[in-house]
Computed example of a mutant assay.
Amino acid sequence: MTHRRPLPSPLRGTAFTSDERALHEVSRNRLKAADITTLSRGVYRSASETLPATELEAQDTAAIMRKIGAVLSHRSAARWHGIPLPAWLDGLDGLEVTVPHRRHTSVRAGLQVHRRPLPEAHTLIDQGVHVTTPERTWCDLASLLRPGQEGHLVAAGDYLVTPPWTPDGREEALSSIGDLQRALTASGRFKGVRLARAALPLIRVGADSVPETLLRLGLVDAGLPEPELQVLADPEDQWSPAADLGYRQWKIAMQHDGAHHRTPEQQERDARRDAWFQARGWMVIRVTAADIRDGYTRVIALVKGRARAMATGQAA
């Protein structure tokens, strides 16, 4: 019986590349042993009896990405950064990666490879994973959308430039409008560049959800002025609550009721907030999922009606 030399510990029970094999001085003949499986050209896996299938799959994909010089991108990078995706994109399976060269590469099934230039400044390493930056990811998302769907790209941009809310206060935003502009300029010509150029001027700081972005865009598309975001009923009062969107000139406060508004505690806070606005003469419009489905027709009608009433002095 032929003696089989044990693999170096960094290569045991995991996937590895031909470069990593050479680095650890493992011979090519050793790769022919029964305890090693070829996953792709230049990518191998040594036997493991302890890891679950999902972790093995992740290791295999990571090794293939290292071999072909791939970077997590597009939908996969958006999920990594937490960027909201429309449902039809978020529901697609498989990882998307970018390879900054055009040579043929043999890859694993389920790995969608994009081949286009990728400057080093457009990538980062997060928790050991090579991934496109939030700004480059935003540009890449434009290539997955069609004309008329720029609202979703605006929502992704709003997410990146708005400091996220936490119980301890706002944290630093992932990006800025200026950084998105610089990434778009540096990306040159690509599929979706026109969509990105159309969406960029519509991005605003202050939208805390996709529905808030789509409502803002819907109001403007209906011929109304652009609403203010995170509206304080009384900017001089440090205790003044804020509305998601609003029109100070017409004293209209709009609140988008998401899933987190269904708890008794949140409903009580919402009621106190609404009463605060109403006591100062504001009209409060609670926006629901039904309004999203009908394109905010009800909300637009209420805003226009209030504006007309205020103009003729008929508003209460």
Rank of each mutant, 00 (worst) to 15 (best):
I285C: 01
S187E: 12
T14S: 13
L232Q: 14
L214Q: 13
A156D: 06
S48P: 01
R170T: 03
S187P: 08
L215Y: 09
E20S: 04
P264D: 12
L85I: 12
E55H: 10
L144V: 00
T98S: 14
R189P: 02
R194E: 12
D257E: 15
H256A: 08
R306F: 11
P225E: 13
A289M: 04
R269S: 03
P227V: 13
A186M: 04
W88C: 00
Y44A: 07
T132I: 04
R41W: 04
R182D: 12
R216V: 03
G218H: 10
R146W: 05
W165C: 04
V26N: 03
L302Q: 14
L7D: 07
G192L: 05
L195T: 04
K32L: 13
E268S: 12
H261W: 10
L51Q: 11
V210F: 06
G246V: 04
L144I: 01
R103A: 10
E172Q: 13
A121Y: 00
E212N: 04
K67R: 15
R108Y: 02
P10R: 03
I36V: 15
G188C: 03
T162S: 09
A307L: 00
V43L: 08
A259Q: 08
R273I: 00
L51S: 11
L214G: 08
A196H: 07
M283L: 15
T37E: 15
G295T: 06
G295D: 07
L111E: 02
T37R: 15
